[in-house]
Nucleic acid binder design. Structure first.
Lengths: 332, 332
DNA sequence: CTGAAAGCGCTAACAA
DNA sequence: TTGTTAGCGCTTTCAG
């Protein structure tokens, strides 16, 4: 298998009648090259379609201009905003984003981490915090800047941009109570962060003198269908449920549809709160009350932290809680 | 800035009392190393947390074990299945997937292509076909295997796994006609592929002796909100519209919600057809009739083609039309 | 402003 | 089975 078009800096140098070093400078520090030479080299580059080999550059300069992000699920609305913002911010600074999917499975996660570390990215963005001790060790040992996101922990690996899931649970419970609901239930994904929201919710529910909220767990990723089925299940077991906190807007949409199919009036007979504030939330009928997390800010901040580090500067406030907000619309 | 933990094969070799080559072999061809040495080297690797430098490996062996995918929008439900399948299939073969977002903008696309080609991936998967002549040239010149997807063209750059958008338009128009609808309208994203579906639809509509279908264009990405607004606009201009073909399921969901808000019975007074067969389609009330594209097959096939090429084999049938299917449910 | 030498970390090819 | 040599393509460093 022959490489069809294997141009190197040397080829370009020869064709332009200069040294390889000058080609390299033309590409990376054009201000240090005389205009005449610059034009000549550029002409050859354009004519040949030469694209320098980034692996060689990275190897020599130990700057890959690459940032890796680890997502539990590759695509799906939840981290959409974060990833978009991350990608945009990095792109502006000349960095490429590489995305890896961890699944919700821990053993695959270590393999993924290995694949990532091999490429020596300038930074790694994790959605969620890293629990596997082996993963932590690898990350720490690699010396690569790491930003954990979408969660809080007293023991971050390195940097952190997140918020408290427990506090979300508390706030939503309190919000529902303040709206007059006394028999709330939970329909929730079965993952670690969702579980902490549930704990927060139940804690507050105890504080307010309510019964423990019935909880219906659904497998991740959450879908509209599991929202419908979830409401059906909850209502079957606890007929006087008067409100539901869903762990995603999709789930909430399912609940809304199922409620409608059953002739249950929202928000009068059933309050519904989602999580995520997807763009569909505002367009629903009734518009969905939901918890908004500023994913854009998470992504942008993570990008900024990593670029700072990659350029050798230090980050002054490497651990931030960006909080969240309950967007009150019409469904609760 | 010192590299905190810069182990190399040489360090590991010294610690294990062997040569660097033996460390390399332990990592890549363990069967060619004696059990005793293997164990010793592995112990050192585990103890130090050594992860080999993939850039160096890639440079030397010109195999990056990397595949790049270009998506118009980074995340979003449309290519979800394709990307997931692509990632899974590549992962099984030991390849990493890198994702780049082109936006719907052509100038950024060339820059992205450049960033991708620099890394010398073993393959590039494009969603949609490459129109920019400059992009084609770059791709061709790079000699990297390319798979274009989600579309058909008589002049692919290299390999192709797609289907005909025009034919989708024709089929949906015919389907609606056969269901008795005589005044269909289109609510569609304003992009190239969507436009070809519209042309197909209008062509068939002429053939069937229908008036040209009113068309309402919405900006990409499509949202539930623009579906609602779209139906309102269509109805305002063309009150006796009796069916709508939406260019995504999200749009269709918006149409369903708007129809409900207006007391329009679906499918009796208004037929609704979506595109994508998202998992929510089946769970809606009424369940959504939609066009299903086998994204999993696209992703898997693309992965297979690229791996074949990367391993030096040739692909026997490098251009496939995987077709599509209208899933008849309750909304039309 | 330009060039020559050296080497980043790894592995293909050959030798022992 | 193991080791030695060389060099992938680039850029850092140092001279001119």
């Amino acid at each position: 298998m022959k490489k069809p078009q294997g141009f190197t800096v040397h080829d370009i140098a020869r064709l332009a009648g200069v040294s390889a070093m000058t080609v390299s400078r033309t590409l990376n520090h054009p201000e240090k090259v005389s205009p005449a030479v610059l034009a000549r080299v550029r002409e050859v580059v354009a004519r040949t379609g030469f694209v320098p080999n980034g692996m060689a550059r990275g190897l020599r300069s130990s700057k890959a201009r690459l940032v890796a992000a680890v997502l539990p699920t590759l695509v799906g609305p939840v981290f959409q905003e974060t990833v978009r913002a991350l990608n945009e911010a990095l792109d502006e600074q000349g960095y490429q984003l590489m995305i890896g999917q961890s699944g919700y499975d821990a053993s695959r996660e270590d393999a993924l981490l290995d694949a990532i570390i091999r490429r020596r990215p300038d930074g790694i963005v994790l959605t969620g915090i890293m629990h596997s001790p082996e993963g932590r060790r690898q990350l720490l040992a690699s010396g690569i800047p790491v930003v954990e996101t979408w969660d809080l922990t007293p023991t971050p690996i390195d940097m952190l941009v997140g918020f408290s899931h427990e506090r979300i649970g508390q706030s939503v419970c309190h919000f529902l109570y303040s709206r007059g609901y006394r028999h709330p239930a939970l329909i929730s994904a079965d993952d670690d962060r969702a579980r902490r929201r549930i704990e927060g919710f139940q804690g507050m529910s105890r504080t307010l003198g309510l019964d423990a909220a019935p909880t219906h767990l659904v497998p991740a990723p959450t879908t509209l269908g599991s929202g419908r089925a979830g409401l059906a299940a909850v209502l079957a077991a606890h007929p006087h449920t008067d409100a539901v906190f869903c762990s995603s807007d999709m789930l909430a949409l399912g609940v809304l549809i199922e409620a409608q199919a059953r002739g249950l009036a929202v928000p009068r007979q059933l309050g519904v709160v989602g999580l995520g504030d997807l763009d569909l939330a505002a367009s629903l009928q009734p518009a969905l009350t939901t918890v908004r997390i500023d994913g854009t800010r998470i992504g942008r901040t993570a990008a900024q932290y990593i670029v700072e580090r990659a350029e050798g500067r230090s980050v002054s406030e490497p651990i931030v809680d960006i909080g969240f907000e309950i967007i009150e619309r019409a469904s609760a």
